[in-house]
């Protein structure tokens, strides 16, 4: 095909036919060759994108009923740990009442939970410092000074909204895309 493209612009000139018509024909042929090569390349490139079986697991549904008040569970979503925690009234209040000026990355709690479901906080359980998985889902885990999560690697601490309160982590824990299917079921992804 590349040869063809080269042929299209080749310097040899035949003796017959109008120059314009001939050049146009060669241009069309060369463009066709380029389109053909592009069309061959796309399936190969696309074959490296996530396949259907991978995409089928790209969202997980989680039942919230077994999660006791004050504790959390870890579910795996796209190979990452997801924390789903059932917050107590006290924890919600602490998260809502904090002064923005005290936060490393200021963000109100209301932006980190779904409206009407403030008792549920869903986070990607990966410390924003160097990628360790923080502790704190079980009430018996160390949860740090702010009652959220504590990263055992370098001592970063997060509050009950998953916001970083003590370095070295620079950012709050990320929130995965999720939605409530019903009051007791969420779909992550």
């Amino acid at each position: 095909m590349a040869e063809l493209a080269a042929a299209g612009t080749g310097g040899h000139h035949g003796a017959h036919g109008g120059d314009g018509r001939r050049d146009f024909l060669r241009l069309i042929t060369a463009s066709g060759a380029v389109i053909g090569v592009g069309a061959i390349a796309w399936p190969l490139i696309d074959s490296m994108n996530p396949s259907k079986d991978v995409l089928a697991l790209s969202s997980v549904e989680t039942d919230l009923t077994p999660i006791e008040l004050g504790s959390g569970i870890t579910v795996v979503w796209r190979g990452k740990p997801i924390f789903v925690r059932h917050r107590t009234e006290k924890e919600i209040k602490e998260a809502e009442d904090v002064q923005m000026s005290q936060l490393i990355e200021p963000q109100p709690d209301s932006e980190r939970v779904k409206a009407g479901h403030a008792q549920w906080i869903v986070l990607i359980g990966i410390c924003t410092h160097l990628g360790c998985v923080p502790l704190g889902n079980k009430p018996t885990d160390p949860r740090g000074e702010w009652g959220g999560w504590f990263c055992p690697c370098h001592g970063s601490q997060y509050d009950t909204s998953g916001r970083v309160r003590h370095g070295p982590a620079p950012l709050n824990l990320y929130i995965p895309p999720y939605a409530f299917e019903s009051n007791t079921k969420i779909k992550i992804g």
């Binding site: 063809l4 042929a7 299209g8 080749g10 040899h12 035949g14 003796a15 017959h16 036919g17 001939r22 024909l25 060669r26 069309i28 042929t29 066709g32």
Partner: peptide
Amino acid sequence: GLTYTVKRQIWSD
């Protein structure tokens, strides 16, 4: 068809 036409032109001489 296109390449054949181009081929005919190129080979015409």
